[in-house]
């Protein structure tokens, strides 16, 4: 555990800076309140008040921690106030979107690698799809699906897939082309068919690229899902929690939801990293 000390140092520094910032950013309001009630605050009392406001501009770390604790452990997990419930809503749409996006990315990459016409035609569209701001697309997707009577998980999963197919596409196009000329010549000398070359050589050789791109894709899927939960009307999920928090100035709620989202993303990326290590080691591809 030689890493513990530096990690702890950085963490402490972040918390310290956060406290200083909270005092600074909340001070105006506390000072205005004191002026209005014509009281004079001592230094200690002033700091205490900046760190315990109901609706602070920037909540202090311990306030966020308390909000998180209450949201995660203080509620029945079926309650609409439970972060576990909201987290699950977001996670399920993220996983569905990630699955759709990854499969689409892999499928398109297979097409691009095997077909000249697709090679020339698909990539520009894929790039264009990512240059359109997701914030502009998300409401349209939600509205179109809602008009067809479809709400809930699927429209959000589509938005998540929109963001997550791209890294997988780019990674797999590279990965499926990574087999070297000698390996391909060997296959040719055995008169192997294209599908045999694909399943026995191209696909296994692409695994390191697949896993690297899946890590990016899963984080993108989470972002997509949360954005999909922002358009008015959504009442469930971490995105909705962020939005309602900002409506009512519940900054603690916003920050608590943000932390849950970050933890989810970290957990998902870690999980894929773990599967990656196992798979690549078994395949003899680990470096």
């Amino acid at each position: 555990m030689r890493n513990t000390l530096p990690v702890l140092t950085v963490l402490l520094a972040v918390v310290a800076i956060w406290y200083v910032a909270a005092i600074g950013m909340n001070s105006t309001w506390v000072r205005d309140q004191a002026a209005r009630s014509e009281t004079v605050l001592g230094m200690g009392e002033f700091v205490r008040q900046t760190l315990s406001l109901d609706r602070p501009v920037l909540p202090a770390p311990h306030q966020v921690a308390a909000g998180l604790w209450d949201g995660v452990f203080g509620q029945k997990i079926t309650s609409k106030r439970s972060l576990v419930w909201h987290g699950w809503i977001t996670l399920s749409a993220t996983l569905a979107g990630f699955a759709i996006g990854s499969l689409a990315g892999i499928g398109l990459a297979v097409g691009i690698v095997h077909d000249r016409a697709m090679n020339q035609s698909v990539m520009p569209w894929a790039v264009a799809s990512q240059t359109v701001p997701i914030l502009a697309i998300a409401p349209m997707v939600i509205v179109v699906f809602a008009s067809a009577g479809i709400t809930g998980l699927l429209p959000k999963a589509i938005i998540a897939a929109w963001l997550s197919f791209f890294p997988v596409l780019v990674g797999m196009v590279k990965g499926l082309r990574t087999a070297d000329a000698m390996q391909l010549d060997l296959m040719r000398s055995w008169n192997a068919s294209r599908s045999q070359v694909f399943w026995r050589l191209r696909l296994p050789s692409s695994m390191p690229y697949l896993f690297a791109s899946l890590k990016v894709a899963v984080a993108a899927a989470l972002v997509g899902t949360i954005v999909g939960e922002l358009p008015a009307g959504a009442s469930a999920g971490l995105g909705a929690r962020l939005l309602s928090g900002s409506y009512y100035g519940q900054t603690v709620q916003i920050w608590a939801a943000l932390f849950v989202a970050a933890a989810l993303a970290a957990g998902l990326v870690f999980l894929i990293g773990w599967i990656e290590r196992l798979a690549l080691r078994r395949m003899g591809l680990a470096r």
Binding site: M182, Q183, L201, M283
Partner: peptide
Amino acid sequence: ARRARAYGYVFQAPGLYPW
């Protein structure tokens, strides 16, 4: 002849699949 699998080819590198 290639399609009839007339020959086996050996390159300078073994080119074995690690998996």
